[in-house]
Simulated assay, not measured.
Amino acid sequence: MSRESLEWLNANTLIGFTGKRGTAWHYRASMQGEELNHYVGPIPVDDVKRRLFGWKALSQPIYVEDPRGGLAQVPDRQAILRSDNGHVMGIFSDSYEPHPYVEWLINNVSRLLDADLSIGSAGLLKGGAVAWVSVEVPDNIVTPEGVEFRPHLFAATSFDGSLATTFKRAVTNVVCDNTMAAGLAESGQHVKIKHSRHSKLRLAEARHALNIVYALADEFSSAVRDLCRVEVTGRQWLKFLDAHTPMPNQQGRGRTMAENRRDTLAKLWNHDLRVAPWRGTAWGVVQAINTFTHHEQNVRGAVRAERNMLRAVTGGIDDLDRGTLRTLSTVLDRPLTSAA
């Protein structure tokens, strides 16, 4: 597999509301041990603290071997270690300020929402150096077009320098367990706080920027409605594939990869229940590309779960969905409501 084994994912991620969306793709009953990591309803906050965040990120000085004997401390540098197993998660300058997971991903989110938490998922990646918590509404929302989704607020941070602490609105598409752009017409609203001294979350500013979770339902439902009303014929779908995945003229690895990608997209479009119900519409095109990227595309240098989570936080999913609409708009030679 990749860096995050199935054993890790089953031990270091918690999945809630399975009665609404089923189990995660990596669920293996044989790897669950005495305590299951899946919950029919919301994940209790105390379970997240105990099972995932029950350790501290410690700042420790760094030493190197002195050629004259002994050790010499490296000036103005620090290592961030896990208190429970000594794992070195990152090395930084003295100006780096760790954001403890409980404080930033649970306590601050609670204050941001000004309500009780309903945690839908939480987890650790990269040996604990990256963490996320997703706060969700209790019930799925189903549009008249049959698209079932869950709005949520995604909070993530890191101890390895890969992420600023980020709070971001997003949508989970239940039929395929995909993260999708919260507002297909514009950049997903998010708040980022750097790991620097005196960094803090300004609640009023963050609430205004995020517009919080419940407003997502109407926005996303409207985007789905508009895209389902845009017809995409079989010929236009093929033109979209030509624009999205051009076929190289010369034989070789590039042409083989393009053929495989197009074959997989065609199967999703025509036969897969995650896409085929909306075949012939602009929404079906968005769904096909998003599903392919989440579940079918080859992943290098990272585990699929890690790649998908980081894309959700950094804006990669927003770029993916809006890029799909821009390409389709060019193929149809018309502006799309949700891409305008």
Rank of each mutant, 00 (worst) to 15 (best):
V175I: 10
A164K: 12
L163C: 02
A181T: 13
T165K: 04
P144K: 02
H195W: 13
K194R: 14
N249R: 07
L210N: 12
R235F: 05
L227Y: 03
L163P: 05
A170Q: 15
N140H: 08
A164F: 11
K192Q: 15
L153C: 00
R229N: 08
S187C: 11
T179C: 14
V175P: 12
G146I: 03
V175Q: 14
A258H: 05
D177C: 01
T157Q: 09
A182M: 13
N140G: 12
G161F: 02
A258G: 02
S187E: 14
C176R: 11
D177R: 09
H152L: 14
V171D: 11
P248D: 01
N173W: 13
V142F: 01
S222M: 09
Q189V: 07
M257D: 09
S199F: 10
A155Y: 11
S162M: 04
I212H: 12
E148P: 03
S221Y: 06
L238F: 06
R225Q: 06
H244T: 06
L268R: 01
E219C: 09
C176F: 04
L184N: 04
E148K: 13
E219Y: 07
P138C: 04
V191L: 11
S162W: 05
R262K: 02
F154R: 12
R261E: 04
G234D: 08
T157W: 05
Y214W: 07
A258Q: 05
Y214R: 12
I193C: 05
N260R: 11
T166Y: 10
V224G: 04
R207M: 00
A215N: 15
A185S: 15
C176S: 13
F220G: 09
L201D: 05
Q236H: 06
A223G: 05
K239S: 04
H190F: 14
A170G: 15
T245W: 07
Q189S: 13
G234W: 06
T165L: 10
M180H: 14
S187R: 15
A258Y: 02
H208N: 08
V191E: 04
E186F: 12
D218A: 11
E186G: 13
N211S: 13
R169P: 11
A204I: 08
N211T: 13
N260G: 08
T179Q: 14
R207D: 00
D226I: 06
N260Q: 07
M180Q: 14
T245I: 03
R225F: 02
G252T: 10
Q251G: 01
H198Q: 15
T256K: 04
E148A: 08
A258C: 04
R253D: 10
Q251W: 08
L201R: 04
A204W: 01
N173A: 11
R197G: 09
A181M: 13
N178D: 15
L238G: 01
C176T: 12
V213D: 03
F149R: 06
P246W: 03
A258D: 03
N211C: 10
